[in-house]
Amino acid sequence: MDIFLSAIFAGTSRGAIYALAALGLVLVWRGAGVVNFAQMGQAMFSTYIASTLIAQNYSYWIAFVVALISGGLLGALVDLLVMRPLNRKKSSSALDSPAMRSTIPVIASLGILGVLQAAAGMIWAAEERGFPTPVNSLGLVINGKIMPFTAFDLFVIGIVFVTLVATTYFFKGTGMGLAMRASALNPEVARLSGIRIGLVRTLSWVISGVASSLAGLLVTPSANLSPYTLDLILIIGFTAAVVGGLDSLLGSVIGGFALGLLVSFVNVYDAPEDIFLAILIVLITVLIIRPQGILGSKEVRRV
């Protein structure tokens, strides 16, 4: 029973992180029509920045905030330096066909991932390093009884919950949020309404960058930091986003938690080596049975 409970708690806290990663992917997919495979590369880079600050005796929280800001800046840079020129070029491109139009940004994002990983390797070398947690990550003891969860689990779940509430408020309760939803749903009507969709797109890259950096900061204590470790989160985040529906923010969060539980149960009851296989099976099953995901709308998949 205790094993079961701790698998649930570990899965929920993991799932919260995957939900962030999936949210980051969905934001850019909806806002800019790109599945950004460089996302966790951006997160890795800003986590390294945090790690460097901590090594120089800055407090965890200063490093935390700086990493989130740099994650946002990296997102903006990716959009301004690569994706915007790509968009401008697309119509006159030598490879102009619908299939290639959706493929080329994917290739560009892989190039960005490569650049970020190589840059991290050059700056911080390849050896793995640990990353601290702001609170204790051993089993919490209450009334002399060891709980099936850690203080860090609670911290992760709490901070992700706050982020999700803030994101929901931003989208439903602010003018900029409305502008982002409108631009994603119908760019032409949005532009005719005076919404600067270029700016809105960049903003979705920024928010996505912050969300995935947060995911990176929270997952790294349990995964160690190297230029390549966060690739796994990308895969899981992608699967979570597809499970939830690539165009649904709420769906991506649900997908994230579902994947978190899946990974946790595979870890506890089976073997960690099977995680990829389990993810692959889930991904293919969803794509065959319900390709638009749990909450996605049907027509979006073919865009």
């Binding site: 599945v35 493929t103 073997a271 990829f276 993810i279 998949r301 073919r302 865009v303």
Partner: peptide, 28 residues
Amino acid sequence: IAAARLSGPYLAGTTLVIALAIPSLATR
């Protein structure tokens, strides 16, 4: 057979997962 139903980024992501999953079978 799986890929014929997919396009663009879906296909890219799925094949990426496959690229990671198949070598992990060797360890399994």
